[in-house]
Computed example of a mutant assay.
Amino acid sequence: MTVEVHWPDHLLTLEDWIALPEDSSRSYELVEGVLVVSPRPVLRHQFAVWQLAAQLHPQLPVQLSVVTEAEVVIDAAPPPTVRVPDVLVIRDEALEDDLARVPPEDVVLAVEILSPGSRRTDRVTKFFEYAEAGIEYYWLIDLDEPASLTAHRLIEGDYELVAEQSGRATLDLTGTPITIDITALTSNRAGR
């Protein structure tokens, strides 16, 4: 049986992006109007996303919430860019408004977990896109042993390195200390 797939033959608008059919078999982002399709993350990556969100949630101030794989409209102007970070800390108003996609001004922290095929994009392209969009904190997590977290904070329009750690890390997030057990992101036996 042959399945015919129709791919866009033009730069997509934000309206085109919104009109795309839902498909959870792959990961999709929109970069300057170009549809970017990637394989779904492997189980270890998915486990790390879940563990990180579970660690963040109880430590956040009441005006912030954690979500996973939510769309962020980095730039709505044509040609638009829509990214889907692994983990986001957002302002509660965005969660209460039950938005389909989040504007960058509602994002406090974007986290990308490095994967084969995304390392350069996460370390270079998204690094500059998120800074330009005004997202205050950007964390990169590398699951290769030893698992590590690299944290950046937006200062005068550019990200500055504020931490690079393995094991346990305590980081400032809008004046709140947040402790992350980085080892637990790769093993359900860590910390037991």
Rank of each mutant, 00 (worst) to 15 (best):
V3K: 04
V3H: 02
E4S: 01
V5K: 01
H6I: 13
W7H: 07
P8M: 01
D9I: 05
T13D: 00
A19K: 07
P21T: 03
E22D: 03
D23Y: 04
S24W: 04
S24T: 11
S25A: 04
S27C: 08
E29H: 13
L35I: 06
R40T: 14
R40N: 08
P41A: 10
V42I: 05
R44N: 06
A53H: 10
L56S: 10
L56A: 07
L60C: 07
Q63V: 14
E71N: 08
A76V: 04
A77R: 08
P80D: 00
T81N: 12
V87Y: 12
V87S: 12
I90K: 01
L95G: 00
E96M: 05
D97Y: 03
D106A: 09
D106S: 10
V107F: 00
V108G: 03
E112R: 03
S115T: 12
S115M: 10
F127H: 10
E132N: 15
I141D: 01
D142Q: 10
L143E: 08
S148K: 14
R153W: 08
L154F: 12
E156D: 09
E156A: 02
E156Y: 07
D158P: 13
D158V: 15
Y159A: 05
E160V: 14
E160H: 11
L161S: 07
V162K: 01
A163S: 10
E164T: 06
Q165R: 12
Q165S: 14
A169W: 04
G175E: 09
I180F: 06
T183E: 03
T186P: 06
A190G: 06
